[in-house]
Design a protein around this nucleic acid. Structure first.
Lengths: 305, 305
DNA sequence: TCATGTCCATAGGTGTGGCCTATCGCGGCT
DNA sequence: AGCCGCGATAGGCCACACCTATGGACATGA
């Protein structure tokens, strides 16, 4: 049994005319006759009664017709389904990202991606790097934006560095700028009141480690909030905070941004995915958009310095 | 897209192993690989990720799998459906017959047919030859058992003589045997009380015509009943009746059967079907059973004479 | 009655493509 | 290092789906 045989059969069943059916499916009449015969032989039953000028379906033909139609329709559906997926007209990407990246990097990138592929569903999981790595390994995520170095490195994951991101100090416009002149050293933060993220933020670990490297323990007036809350507390004059430059750039005019003096602080953002399987087509496309955006991000970041 | 490609695809999707899948479908591994590649090329998307020792379905593959299974299942169903019809494991025959044939000939024949093909549904229409011919031409019947000559002959119908059937006289065992000795002439029926079928029975026309040919008009004590009623009236001593030998043979011991003296009366039973289309497979099989039964009927009939 | 037209079946030739065996290349083992 | 397992590739072979040409049966009209 072959698809073209079923197609020929259905066409003859509809036209009740071998010659016309042959034209309709663009084969010669003998080829069509031959294929119908072959189908009949394989099935072991005649499908048509061939009285001159009076073609009709046999009982077997009547039984076959609806199934043949359904098989052909399914084959058509299969072609379209697969092609829509391949052409990114449908599909989904499950992307994990740390909260600071969701706030800073993702909005523009996701907007670009969505404009390119409006049919692709975007599922974002906002978690710390640790959780993201676990979800990725489980196969619950296609991609994750993580901060290097990974808390739990594993050969099962492949990471590709995406960009280095400067950290800056933000403070309320209403309080004096910290440090001396246009920049501030980490050492200058000793004794300054700070607002700190909840545990799980990479930024928390990074900032605390930097302070300890300078020989002091940072003092927190408030701690435990998410990104938005922290920025709100800073805006309210409760203290200053260390955040990625990209986040600070979006935070609005009532926040003062003070870069850190050299060598400053920075973190490396990487894109991670499982090593054993290629990410799905749609995820690979999001990768492309992310790497393309890196060029623009880096350019605009340096122009602001 | 071809059936074997879908089969190969499903098998690989289930085993996640090209070599094992190839064994399972009895082709060489390169052939299977090649067909999967061909399918992927036609659909325009990869179906598997082929990491060494870690074959997995892509999104496109996941989308195709249920459809491929369904197509293969439908193809299987189609094969079985058609073959069941062809092998007479299923189907139906719509058979028309005159009442006297339903009573006399059919029970044994239908029993034989049903034993041979228990899956075939038997639909019997009991009518006069006139109605049967009309239903046959409409396509509402596959076959009809009629009495020749047809009331409305038509080239659209093909009739094949099935058997000649003697008519005999039946009377109640309680009344004297009609006629002289072991047989009776049609002429002897003059003045005898008779029970007659309703209009529409071929037997009525035939009997009345025979009496008139002898120069008398038959006298009916009761008329208008169906076959069973007529036999009942005869049994009750209301009169005698002319019926086919086959009917009389089934009627029981309390009816006396008297053959007609030569040349006697007989009628020709024929099997009729449309000339333009072959009867369905199951109907042809019933034809065979009917013609086979003719041999036995004729033999047993002659042995009884 | 014969010519003509229609329509499906048959005959014979051709090329594609599905199948095979043999082999390669790569990665994971012992 | 060497072997093994596994999928991809190469090249040859043959079946079969396709074509054109023709046959044969039936219907129609001059």
């Amino acid at each position: 049994m072959q698809f073209q045989q079923l197609l020929y059969f259905v066409t003859v069943a509809e036209t009740l005319h071998f010659t016309h059916a042959a034209e309709q499916v663009h084969v010669s009449q003998p080829s069509l006759s031959q294929q119908i015969r072959a189908l009949e032989k394989e099935l072991g039953a005649d499908l048509f009664t061939r009285a001159r000028g009076n073609i009709a379906l046999t009982d077997a033909g009547k039984a076959l017709l609806p199934l043949a139609r359904r098989i052909l329709a399914d084959a058509d559906t299969a072609r379209h389904e697969v092609q829509e997926l391949a052409q990114l007209r449908r599909g989904r990407v499950r992307l994990g990202a740390t909260p600071s990246l969701c706030t800073g990097l993702l909005p523009d990138v996701l907007r670009t991606f969505h404009d390119l592929h409006p049919g692709i569903q975007l599922l974002i999981e906002e978690s710390g790097s640790h959780d993201l790595v676990r979800e990725l390994a489980r196969g619950a995520l296609d991609l994750a934006l993580v901060v290097l170095p990974l808390p739990t490195p594993s050969p099962a994951l492949t990471t590709v560095e995406l960009l280095h991101e400067d950290l800056v100090v933000v403070s309320a416009a209403s309080v004096p700028r910290p440090g001396r002149g246009r920049s501030v050293r980490v050492a200058d933060l000793e004794g300054e009141p700070m607002v700190m993220f909840r545990h799980g933020y990479d930024l928390r670990e990074l900032t605390v480690a930097a302070c300890r490297a300078e020989g002091f323990e940072p003092s927190f007036t408030v701690e435990g909030g998410e990104m938005d809350a922290v920025l709100g507390f800073v805006r309210a004059g409760l203290g200053l905070a260390v955040v990625p430059r990209m986040v600070a750039a979006r935070a609005g005019r009532d926040l003062r941004v003070t870069p850190l003096a050299r060598p400053g602080l920075s973190r490396t953002i990487a894109l991670a995915h499982r090593s054993d399987v290629d990410p799905p087509r749609a995820a690979r496309e999001l990768q492309n958009v992310l790497f393309a955006s890196r060029v623009r991000q880096t350019a605009s970041a340096s122009s602001k310095v």
